[in-house]
């Protein structure tokens, strides 16, 4: 589904060059729920932005659904973002001027294919994620948790190959965080969605099938859930503690 090979990315500030990703290798399978964790500056968000085609990378390759991202023109990359990827951001990134239903439908509108079927799908997703009562409201009128669930619904409207989520619980309280993560679980269970999530939150990560730990631009370790969620969270916390030592 998603293959990342030998990925390098650095930022230039003035004359100085700061390497952020130093040869990352991993893959995500269809239907898998994978999280990336690591301390600030480890390269988590940069990795996600490279996969999302938001920022160009220098070396290596990223393949989504058999399509290599490197070397594609802007039009193709936009099409990949629209049809093959779904996005969930930390600060929701809903458009204030549109209702929640319209926000959910944005990827379809961009595609130019808003029809009855799309509207029905938006309603189904809203029902699945418990936000059908706010479909005609505007983002300013709803809570953070509801906004994020709307964002998850939006990420699924085009039935993407993979959902890319950047700190989806970062701006939420614990109750809303749980709801959002359960929403992802729901999407995975009911729609066989593939989810790749960057997070700081060990609780959120403990819902995943696998967690990739990043440190200083390299993969430090990968952990797979074998037991229950609580045990997996303990295992994660231990690994994070070990990594910070």
């Amino acid at each position: 589904m998603l293959y990342v090979k030998d990925l390098y990315k650095s930022y230039e500030v003035g004359k100085n060059k700061y390497p952020v990703l130093k040869g990352i290798d991993f893959h995500v399978e269809q239907g898998e729920f994978v999280a990336v964790m690591g301390p600030s500056g480890s390269g988590k968000t940069t990795l996600l932005n490279c996969i999302s085609c938001y920022i160009p990378f220098e070396k290596g390759s990223i393949t989504v659904g058999g399509v290599k991202l490197a070397g594609q023109n802007e039009e193709t990359l936009a099409n990949i973002r629209n049809t093959k990827l779904g996005f969930v951001f930390q600060d929701f990134m809903l458009l204030d001027g549109l209702t929640i239903r319209e926000n959910i439908l944005i990827p379809r509108i961009v595609q130019g294919e808003v029809n009855k079927e799309a509207e029905q799908l938006a309603d189904q997703l809203a029902t699945m994620f418990g936000i059908s009562h706010i479909l005609n409201k505007y983002p300013a009128e709803i809570s953070g948790g509801e906004k994020q669930r709307a964002a998850v619904a939006r990420s699924l409207i085009n039935n993407p190959l993979i959902i890319l989520a950047d700190e989806p619980t970062g701006n939420l309280d614990s109750k809303s965080s749980r709801t959002v993560i359960e929403t992802f679980g729901n999407a995975k269970a009911k729609m066989n969605a593939t989810i790749f999530m960057v997070t700081h939150d060990s609780f959120a990560a403990s819902f995943c099938d696998r967690v990739v730990l990043l440190k200083d631009g390299n993969i430090y370790r990968q952990l797979e859930k074998s037991g229950n969620r609580s045990e997996f969270q303990d295992e994660l916390l231990d690994a994070l503690k070990e990594m910070s030592e």
Partner: peptide, 15 residues
Amino acid sequence: GQLGILMALGASRRR
């Protein structure tokens, strides 16, 4: 902000 969100969701330059 608005342009960026639409770009992120797959709207191309031409669109």
